[in-house]
Simulated assay, not measured.
Amino acid sequence: MNFLSKDEALSRLSLTNPIHFLALGFGSGMMAKAPGTFGTLAAIPLYLLMAPLSIQWYLGLTLLSVIAGFYICDKAAKDMGVHDHGAIVWDEVAGLLITMIAAPAGWLWLVIGFALFRFFDIIKPWPIRWLDAKVKGGFGIMIDDVLAGIFSLACLQGLAYFFA
């Protein structure tokens, strides 16, 4: 891939392109600071639309977001000419949806889930950091956030078991 500035790479994407729109987390990834956090925030309305669904529908749509994410992130990265550009935040959207699987209802649990996901996505404990460094392409962009979502899901469910 080419050596482009962040702005040059981002200028290669368009919010009118549906793949780019999703990869950029509905535009949230274009924030100059903390695009991953804004991408996770952008996932909240999607989560709130999905939360009332049956667990089967929720799991199906979450799995679809992950599988589609492999393509969405790969295509956006190729179009930008940069692997895992910070503006690509569909992986954060999918990660929050994973975190919130079967979460108890209420804003407190959403805030806890959000904080757990951001913690694991930023800190990247093993094997998340290893996967982030070693695996490339759309799968590589997605897999560290999928795993951060699974870690967050486990913690959230543990907290819910004892405190909900």
Rank of each mutant, 00 (worst) to 15 (best):
residue 40 T to H: 04
residue 137 G to P: 12
residue 81 G to Q: 01
residue 70 F to Q: 01
residue 80 M to F: 00
residue 37 T to C: 05
residue 94 A to L: 03
residue 104 P to A: 07
residue 62 T to R: 11
residue 95 G to K: 00
residue 117 F to Q: 08
residue 53 L to R: 04
residue 76 A to C: 06
residue 124 K to A: 11
residue 162 F to N: 07
residue 63 L to V: 15
residue 71 Y to R: 00
residue 64 L to H: 08
residue 54 S to L: 02
residue 79 D to Q: 13
residue 143 I to N: 06
residue 102 A to L: 03
residue 129 R to Y: 10
residue 88 I to R: 01
residue 87 A to E: 00
residue 150 I to G: 11
residue 82 V to W: 01
residue 113 G to H: 01
residue 136 K to N: 13
residue 148 A to I: 02
residue 145 D to V: 03
residue 31 M to A: 15
residue 75 K to T: 13
residue 125 P to V: 10
residue 72 I to Q: 01
residue 8 E to F: 04
residue 49 L to E: 08
residue 125 P to N: 08
residue 120 F to G: 12
residue 23 A to C: 07
residue 142 M to Y: 04
residue 95 G to N: 05
residue 11 S to G: 15
residue 155 C to E: 00
residue 117 F to V: 09
residue 25 G to Y: 07
residue 93 V to Q: 01
residue 98 I to N: 04
residue 137 G to C: 07
residue 42 A to L: 06
residue 24 L to P: 13
residue 125 P to D: 11
residue 11 S to F: 02
residue 10 L to I: 08
residue 55 I to H: 14
residue 31 M to W: 08
residue 8 E to C: 04
residue 76 A to F: 03
residue 70 F to S: 01
residue 80 M to I: 01
residue 119 F to V: 03
residue 105 A to N: 14
residue 72 I to N: 04
residue 32 A to M: 06
residue 121 D to G: 12
residue 92 E to F: 10
residue 96 L to M: 12
residue 8 E to H: 06
residue 102 A to T: 12
residue 144 D to A: 10
residue 73 C to M: 05
residue 19 I to F: 09
residue 13 L to N: 07
residue 104 P to N: 06
residue 74 D to Y: 00
residue 87 A to V: 01
residue 145 D to T: 05
residue 108 L to Q: 14
residue 10 L to P: 11
residue 104 P to G: 10
residue 103 A to T: 03
residue 113 G to F: 02
residue 135 V to M: 14
residue 99 T to C: 07
residue 20 H to V: 08
residue 119 F to A: 10
residue 85 H to K: 02
residue 111 V to C: 13
residue 73 C to S: 13
residue 115 A to K: 00
residue 160 A to M: 05
residue 38 F to N: 12
residue 26 F to A: 13
residue 160 A to N: 04
residue 39 G to D: 07
residue 45 P to F: 09
residue 111 V to I: 14
residue 148 A to T: 03
residue 96 L to S: 13
residue 26 F to Q: 08
residue 154 A to V: 15
residue 73 C to K: 02
residue 73 C to A: 11
residue 50 M to H: 09
residue 102 A to G: 09
residue 90 W to Y: 05
residue 140 G to H: 07
residue 56 Q to C: 08
